[in-house]
């Protein structure tokens, strides 16, 4: 019943999963004016149902997930602006992060790396692990890695 309520809630609020996530190395969307790439690594030891992002300017909500345990990168092509990871669903709980959560200012024409989100009980945190993000990007999206990061790709 809980699951049905969540799914219904997402559908009704017009939210979507992995909407902006780049998944195909052969089909990387080129950035249009006022767009930038936003990259995050999720490091989790449990399955994560969803991670919510909020565009602070437009109020738009979107989600990534479900995420299996392990370390995985998510790179998205989004409009420039402020984005925050505000909520996460894991361990059968909904976690709302304080003070708008973990935020990043996405600049146009750039690859904007948020950090590595460590999903842990009882407290999740964010760390800067650019080397690991580069390695994961090289593995998943080598073309984008070469285009944006170059060295190490």
């Amino acid at each position: 019943m809980k699951k049905v309520v969540f799914i219904l809630g997402f559908v009704l609020s017009g939210c979507s999963f992995n909407k902006y996530v780049i998944q195909d190395n052969a089909n990387i969307p080129p950035l249009s004016t006022n767009q930038g790439y936003m990259g995050v690594t999720v490091n989790t030891i449990e399955k994560v149902s969803s991670i919510r992002f909020v565009n602070q300017q437009t109020g738009e909500n979107f989600f990534i997930g479900p995420i299996d345990k392990g370390i995985k990168q998510y790179t998205m092509a989004v409009e420039a602006g402020d984005y925050c990871i505000t909520q996460m669903q894991a361990y059968q709980y909904n976690f709302n992060f304080k003070n708008n959560g973990f935020c990043v200012y996405v600049e146009e024409g750039e690859l904007n790396y948020i950090g590595e989100l460590f999903v842990r009980w009882p407290q999740s945190h964010l760390q800067q692990r650019f080397e690991r993000y580069t390695a994961l990007l090289k593995q998943d999206l080598p073309a984008l890695c070469r285009e944006q990061i170059g060295e190490g790709c």
């Binding site: 602070q56 402020d82 925050c84 935020c103 950090g115």
Partner: peptide, 11 residues
């Protein structure tokens, strides 16, 4: 280097 200072959104 390698940091982003504004990890908290402040309006």
């Amino acid at each position: 280097s390698g940091n982003r200072i504004d990890h908290q959104y402040i309006k």
